[in-house]
């Protein structure tokens, strides 16, 4: 028995393993959407446990917007090498040609083209029929009603009226040609569960989650890290060094940092227990409007 984990985490882990095995048994071409963050990390770790001593029976897919933090890409490649897993990196080249970027196009369009559309393109290109995502129900209100197996039409659309009831652990995995399923093994986890699991299982994470002196600029109360020269500085704006870390990681111009002294997982969990803002606060794409997640979901973004 794994004594590192509490009864609660053991139960969550077993549930996630069950879900992953069900997908591998019932779908022809599953893929794990690997976004490099802590949730993906936990999901990947659980996947390896689920199919032990075998290898992962599916590849990983990273939809790269080309605006991820340098540290994330380095971590991604190191993870692939360390675990000997296949990571497909997909970039929406057509979007790049159109010059779409978070800086030039704004967060909404950038996310739409480089993430949502890119994901659909990648799923179509490789004909994946099931995609694991690391989303959790505690992230946002509308997620609370999301299924673990979320059905998507051939056009990748999510129809809130056409989702299947999930009874017991009897998941209805049947799809028609061209349709697909998004599957969320961590649905019942909370942010804190993920961190406690990460700590207990010693899962490596991107160093950006830990506090360090980093060059930042402050815009509308949000700290943006100057990860490379592509971030245009406004007149008079000068990056300054601050001790910051990130609670969620995405495209660097869209990820707000928080001031923090948490240098270790232990500090971080302690900080999280005392803090009272949600992790999505740092995610600029959600501020646009209430119910925005739901719209994105209908369009095929998670």
């Amino acid at each position: 028995m794994n004594n590192r984990l509490s009864a609660h985490l053991r139960q969550l882990e077993a549930e996630a393993i069950f879900i992953m095995r069900e997908v591998v048994a019932e779908f022809a071409r599953p893929v794990l959407l690997y976004s490099i963050g802590k949730d993906s990390g936990a999901m990947l770790h659980i996947a390896q446990k689920a199919f032990y001593p075998g290898k992962l029976p599916f590849p990983l897919l990273h939809v790269d917007t080309t605006w991820k933090f340098k540290d994330m890409i380095a971590f991604r490649d190191a993870t692939a090498a360390r675990l000997g897993v296949e990571i497909i990196v997909y970039v929406n080249e057509e979007g790049l040609k159109r010059g779409i970027s978070p800086v030039a196009s704004g967060s909404a369009l950038h996310t739409q083209v480089m993430k949502t559309e890119a994901l659909r393109q990648a799923l179509d290109k490789y004909r994946f029929d099931a995609a694991f995502g690391g989303a959790r129900r505690d992230e946002e209100k509308s997620r609370a009603k999301e299924r673990i197996f979320s059905h998507r039409s051939a056009a990748h659309a999510w129809d809130p009226r056409n989702q299947r009831p999930e009874l017991w652990r009897l998941f209805n995995t049947r799809i028609k040609p061209g349709e697909s399923m998004r599957v969320f093994p961590l649905s019942n986890w909370t942010e804190r569960d993920v961190w406690e699991y990460t700590a207990a299982e010693s899962i490596p994470v991107v160093p950006l989650y830990f506090a360090k002196q980093r060059p930042v600029v402050e815009r509308d109360g949000t700290l943006i890290m100057v990860d490379d020269e592509r971030l245009p500085l406004k007149p008079g704006e000068k990056p300054r060094m601050e001790r910051v870390r990130f609670r969620t990681l995405g495209c660097y111009p869209l990820s707000g940092a928080i001031r923090s002294d948490a240098e270790t997982l232990d500090d971080m969990i302690a900080e999280m227990r005392s803090t009272n803002t949600s992790e999505r606060q740092g995610r600029l794409i959600d501020h646009d409007e209430a119910g925005s997640m739901e719209k994105k979901k209908r369009e095929g973004y998670f």
């Binding site: 590192r4 509490s6 009864a7 609660h8 406690e196 207990a200 010693s202 830990f210 270790t264 232990d266």
Partner: peptide
């Protein structure tokens, strides 16, 4: 930062803290 040591400390904390005995309801 020495991650290995940190994580070890955390592991000890996780078990020593005496997590809830009853399973999730």
């Amino acid at each position: 930062m020495n991650e290995a040591v940190e994580i070890e400390a955390l592991e000890q904390r996780a078990t020593a803290a005496g997590e809830p005995a009853l399973p999730t309801l």
